[in-house]
């Protein structure tokens, strides 16, 4: 599945992010219900819930998107909106099969995504700064810039 080399529009990227947020949130609630991780008083002892909630977010994200990310560099939201994560080399050569994004880069991107859920307090600034970067010429968020990735439209 090659990209067109054309950068994905901001609207498509925003749509994909919103779709992913909704899906991860809903799946996280199902996971919370089934596992019962925050069902008893003991689960909250010593501030334990502050670890459980991020863990739930990571698990939900990986269960929903892990396979797609690894194989197609896409989340569900990106697949629905027809966009894909690529390395910078693909922008100049759309047929570049080597432009597959590495596991570690995908993982770090996932952390940036999950920060949206934790966007209370000081994380809010980080999330805003990260996403406002998309208004630059290269339509890259800050995490794209750091990791050398872009998001393109599929052919």
């Amino acid at each position: 599945m090659n990209g067109s080399g054309e950068l994905a529009s901001r609207i498509r990227r925003l749509s994909a992010t919103l779709l992913d947020l909704g899906l991860v949130f809903c799946f996280g609630l199902v996971l919370l219900l089934v596992t019962g991780w925050l069902e008893d008083a003991e689960d909250f002892a010593g501030g334990g819930s502050s670890l459980t909630i991020p863990l739930l977010g990571i698990m939900s994200f990986l269960i929903l998107n892990g396979w797609l990310l690894w194989n197609y560099s896409q989340t569900i939201g990106k697949r629905i909106t027809g966009i894909r994560i690529v390395t910078q080399t693909v922008i100049s050569d759309p047929d570049d099969e080597v432009g597959k994004v590495t596991f570690w880069k995908l993982l770090i991107r996932s952390v940036f995504f999950l920060l949206i859920f934790a966007s209370f307090s000081f994380f809010l600034i980080l999330v805003l700064v990260d996403h406002l970067w998309i208004f630059g010429k290269k339509k890259q968020c800050l995490h794209d810039l750091i990791l050398g990735t872009s998001v393109i439209r599929l052919k």
Binding site: L29, L32, L33, G36, L38, E39, D40, A41, F44
Partner: peptide, 18 residues
């Protein structure tokens, strides 16, 4: 007292045991 009075607001919490 107990924080359960507030935790009960979570629908995923099996209120209450303290």
């Amino acid at each position: 007292s107990s924080a359960e009075v507030g935790l009960a607001m979570s629908p995923f919490y099996g209120c209450c045991e303290t």
